[in-house]
């Protein structure tokens, strides 16, 4: 197996391919965000994701394999099954849902306590989503509330508006760079 893997690895070396996991609480905008990220324009009206969905697209010469996880509490235990072969994680936070920031923090901790996260330094991209709404908190406040300072992983937070695609490009651009950097240093 190892030989085949290495062969394939050589073969695909030129193309950048990243596997990304999109997580976050329900109604935070993961599905909308991924739909908006796709170059092909799609209908942005969504229904709550059940279980998970796969999204594959290529953008700026990078092939994305995204797993859009459901954020409902009954499906959150599925997240960990996809940690093993993910290159980066997009954590979408609803910046208006102040009541559940503590739940976000809790889920983040649960995720980081998984052995895959302690083994690898998987880059984490946070989106403070729904910036268009008037009661949204700023990314600054969000990172203070979520205590992101003490994360051992490379991370960054971006303000985003998934409906209009604001902030998505910068965030994903950083994530791709971070993944590439992680790969080169890991080798």
């Amino acid at each position: 197996m190892g030989i085949f893997k290495r062969l394939f690895g050589l073969f695909y070396k030129r193309r950048t391919k990243v596997k990304i996991l999109a997580v976050g609480l329900d109604n935070s905008g993961k599905t909308t965000l991924l739909k908006k990220l796709r170059p092909k324009k799609a209908d942005l009206s969504t229904v709550p994701t059940v279980g998970y969905e796969f999204e594959s697209f290529s953008k700026n010469g990078v092939a994305f394999d995204c797993v859009d996880m459901s954020g409902q509490s009954k499906y959150r235990n599925l997240w960990e099954h996809y940690f093993t072969d993910t290159d980066g994680v997009i954590f979408v936070v609803d910046a208006t849902d102040k009541l559940r920031f503590v739940v976000v923090r809790e889920e983040l901790e649960t995720m980081l306590s998984h052995q895959e996260f302690s083994r690898r330094k998987i880059p984490l991209l946070f989106f403070a989503n729904k910036m268009d709404l008037h009661d949204a908190v700023t990314p600054n406040e969000l990172l203070a509330t979520l205590q992101l300072d003490d994360l051992a992983h490379p991370w960054r937070i971006f303000a985003s508006n998934a409906l209009r695609g604001e902030g998505l490009e910068e965030g994903v651009g950083w994530l791709v760079d971070a993944i590439a950097e992680h790969k080169t240093t890991a080798k």
């Binding site: 690895g9 083994r119 990314p139 300072d149 490379p154 240093t185 890991a186």
Partner: peptide, 27 residues
């Protein structure tokens, strides 16, 4: 391609403090 799996490398990233400081400026 299974990338990143395998041996863990020593921390190649810039020190965390730097990242945070930078992050705050960005944010």
């Amino acid at each position: 391609i299974s990338v990143g799996s395998g041996a863990t490398a020593p921390d190649p990233l810039p020190p965390l403090e730097e990242a945070i400081a930078k992050e705050r400026d960005d944010a």
